Amino acid sequence: MSEQQGPVPKRAYQKAKRAEDEQRTRGRIVDAAEHLHGSLGPARTTVSAVADCAGVTRATVYRHFADEEALFLACSREWLSRQQLPDPSAWGLIDDPAERLRTGLMDIYGFYRRGAQMMTLIHRDVEAVPAVVVAGRRSREQEWLHALLRPLPGHRRKLVRAAVAHATSFTTWQSLCGAHGLSDRSAVELVVGMVERAAQR
């Protein structure tokens, strides 16, 4: 017969509750930083503002995060975890270069549209963004670029690479769809035409 378990010792219960409270506090701090990055921008987000928004003290913020870079990394990971990121592996299943380009760009432009507010401020305040976050973004963009370039005729030529790099850039989407009001599909058709002409030269 198995022994019947007794009640959880008070000290163990208090320790577990304290850990849960700390995790909730950490979550509030990350949420506050994300909110401020997406509304004011990184350059205008201070630790004091994060603390006020989260309802904690500056000391509490620093107890959870050694410095602003650590907080920014946690915020970035949390935001990215909720995004539907472009999937280059799915594009690789498409043999036709032009169709792969259209599909990939629609995927990328959808991501840009959904995250437009945050990404606009991140790009504006890039000098305030930790280098590791910028490097991560550029690495993803290079992966997209290579996946779309690989099957294109003349993909090794500088003109073709420049055309695809321009097509996949957030600032290109921002100009065509944000400033000029094009739909994602219209913008994609426009830049696909540009890339195809570059590949034919």
Rank of each mutant, 00 (worst) to 15 (best):
G178Y: 07
G41F: 10
M194C: 12
L71R: 08
E189R: 14
A135R: 15
E127T: 13
S139C: 05
V50W: 05
H35Y: 14
I122E: 00
E69R: 14
S89C: 04
I122Y: 00
A179G: 04
G154E: 03
L190V: 12
L85I: 03
A19T: 12
A187V: 06
T25V: 13
P88M: 07
A51E: 08
R150T: 11
V133S: 04
S139K: 12
S139I: 02
I108L: 08
A165F: 09
S186C: 08
A74G: 08
L159H: 14
E127P: 02
G27R: 09
L73Q: 14
A147R: 06
A167L: 06
G115K: 01
R140F: 06
G136N: 10
E141R: 07
H166N: 11
S48F: 09
V133N: 03
A163L: 07
S2W: 11
L148I: 07
P151A: 13
P151V: 07
H64Q: 15
A59I: 12
Q200K: 14
A16Y: 10
L149W: 07
S89G: 03
Y62N: 13
G38D: 07
E143S: 06
R113T: 01
S48N: 12
M194E: 12
S76W: 07
L80S: 14
G178R: 09
R26G: 05
S2Y: 09
L85T: 10
V188G: 00
G38C: 15
I108H: 01
A128Q: 03
L121H: 04
L176K: 05
A162H: 14
S89V: 09
R58Y: 04
L121C: 06
T46I: 13
V132N: 05
V126R: 06
S39G: 05
D125Q: 04
W79N: 04
F170W: 12
P130M: 10
G115L: 01
V195M: 08
H35C: 10
L149S: 02
G110C: 00
G193I: 08
A131D: 13
A12N: 05
P86T: 04
T45H: 04
R102F: 06
I29T: 00
G136F: 05
P42N: 01
L105R: 01
H123M: 07
